[in-house]
């Protein structure tokens, strides 16, 4: 296995770069980071929608979340493949299709994280803000959301790990991320499928466990910081809702 890694690490890490477009692990990470950054603001909007007292907004947000959470990511990718060119009027390359699907999928799951964070905040915080004259919007922006998101940071980082895993579906639509790169390597070598896919699994294992480890460290730090307050996002609660894969 070691010589496979030695001879082909470039393909796995960077794809065909610099002779071709970026691929491999680098593309996986690019997709994941972009996916998280774009889906995060959307997830906040969805969470606020789910908490809204205005029925059309509430029902719209709830429907979106339930539909997306009830659909396999692969189906969502096929939908995007079909709908995006119609919406944009031009052919859309697989990278963008995958990115859009990931953004929508993650936004739905992240919105549950954010919503849980908002709901777990002691009501006294919002009350104190309203009593000082903060309107509903300002209360949310300056007092509730900063605290909710900080408290949910470990879960958000865990979702990032899920996102990295979800990029592997690029294999099905020819996006040249890590899994596709491994597959390509396998078709080159032909006689060592176990070694190749084992390397693939180990790579994901290393990357994702590092991210998960960071999440655990964050959780401990935040729990210490928040000592003496009534909110402790317990492990049970976190694992219950937030694994999308």
């Amino acid at each position: 296995m070691w010589d496979i890694i030695q001879n082909h690490y470039q393909l796995l890490l960077l794809g065909t770069f610099p002779q071709g477009p970026l691929g491999g692990l680098a593309l996986t990470l690019v997709l994941s980071i972009l996916g998280l950054c774009i889906s995060f603001p959307l997830s906040i909007l969805l969470a606020l929608g789910r908490l809204s007292k205005f029925p059309p907004v509430y029902y719209l947000a709830t429907t979106i979340v339930y539909v997306v959470r009830g659909t396999p990511l692969l189906m969502l990718i096929f939908w995007s493949y079909f709908l995006l060119p119609l919406l944009i009027g031009n052919t859309v390359n697989p990278f963008v299709t995958l990115l859009c699907s990931l953004v929508i999928y993650e936004a739905a799951y992240l919105s549950e994280v954010v919503r849980a964070g908002i709901v777990a905040l002691p009501p006294g915080q919002a009350e104190a803000a309203r009593a000082l004259g903060f309107g509903r919007a300002k209360t949310m922006i300056y007092i509730v959301l900063p605290q909710a998101i900080y408290n949910m940071l470990p879960s958000i980082v865990s979702q990032f790990a899920s996102l990295i895993k979800e990029t592997s579906l690029g294999y099905v639509i020819s996006v040249h991320e890590l899994t596709s790169a491994a597959n390509r390597l396998n078709s080159e070598l032909l006689t060592k499928p176990f070694e190749v896919f084992a390397i693939l699994a180990l790579t994901y294992f290393l990357v994702c466990s590092t991210v998960t480890f960071i999440a655990h460290v964050l959780e401990r730090r935040i729990a210490k910081r928040r000592q003496g307050q009534s909110i402790t996002p317990s492990r049970v609660h976190r694992d219950q809702i937030y694994e999308s894969q």
Binding site: F194, F197, L200, Y204
Partner: peptide
């Protein structure tokens, strides 16, 4: 830790292409 940090798709590929080969 292993099963949760490796994508489901990769598990499927590993079992079907990799382990079956062994």
């Amino acid at each position: 830790a292993y099963h949760r940090n490796v994508p489901m798709l990769v598990h499927v590929l590993l079992w079907y292409f990799g382990i079956s080969n062994l």
